[in-house]
Design a protein around this nucleic acid. Structure first.
Lengths: 156, 156
DNA sequence: AAAATAAAAGAATATAATTCTTATTAGAGT
DNA sequence: ACTCTAATAAGAATTATATTCTTTTATTTT
């Protein structure tokens, strides 16, 4: 086991998951430390890959992307090369923000963020249904979102 | 219509969605401008709510949360007050990162990030099934993730 | 075309990140 | 229990970036 996260690391990650613009000074004060160890710990967390990146989270609706849709998909063939091709194609579709291979009633579950129902239908017709080996397709249209966070549970 | 986003705003948002640690200088260079207008535009995008927040994205697997699960849920009652209570309860569960009310074959779709199958089962038994009015519950266990991005499509 | 408005440039300042040096702490080995 | 060693934290100094302010340029309006 190379490096485990101690309590301070976990606290830092929890803070940065919520607001990555917090200064090292402000984090240091919250954790009753000075800036240097906080700074060094953050750099270590970045270098070792615990922190993948820092991003701006946009307000989808404000920007005009008012609709989130989940699409469950079954494929008719399951050869390795086809699955890879499917995922590759999906990666070219900017409206698809997630694509998971799943067990259960579907092979894949997609998450889409689009302008509206029309954009969703356009996606289905001009992109999704053009993929070969496509089996059953089942859409779940989001009516409202009760929770949507980037914060993953680290304990504490 | 208060404020539309012009091309430069959109470019800034695209950059910040990918890496929010980019300096104004580096963004300015990419867009062939100076730092001041970039800085002011970013502040405006923040103030007007196009940018909701800045966050650190962690590596779930590295941190020990190796399993993502989607759970489709139907409820037995649909009174307004119950739906609200349901969502409120869900918000207390840190392993649930998303909760959407959907149309289609389910009432709600949850996304969970947990350690492993055991943690998932614990969630089901000790948290989910304790909620009243619970109807059908159907889980999709993620086997692999082919795409997972925070970048929403702004065109360009 | 002139005036008014908004946006950008450039320079100056303030703040925070980063580095470096020194001190403290915690653990390992004797 | 003591000393040595390595790791971590503190504190000061430096560098880089964010932020503000002023001037200039471009754009829009009448």
């Amino acid at each position: 086991m190379p490096h485990a996260l101690d309590k301070i690391d976990t606290q830092i990650l929890n803070i940065l998951q919520i607001d990555s613009n917090r200064t090292t000074k402000s984090i240091a004060e919250e954790l009753s430390m000075t800036t240097s160890p906080i700074f060094e710990r953050i750099k270590k967390l970045e270098k070792e890959g615990y922190i993948k990146k820092y991003v701006a989270v946009l307000d989808n609706k404000k920007i005009g992307l008012k609709l989130t849709v989940f699409i469950g998909i079954t494929l008719q063939g399951h050869t390795r090369s086809y699955l890879e091709k499917f995922v590759k194609e999906i990666n070219n579709f900017p409206e698809v923000v997630e694509c998971h291979r799943v067990s259960g009633n579907f092979d894949y579950l997609l998450k889409l963020v689009v302008e509206d129902i029309e954009a969703y239908e356009t996606f289905i017709i001009t992109k999704l249904t053009l993929l070969p080996y496509l089996g059953n397709v089942q859409s779940l249209i989001t009516l409202s979102t009760g929770k949507e966070t980037n914060v993953i549970d680290l304990g504490l």
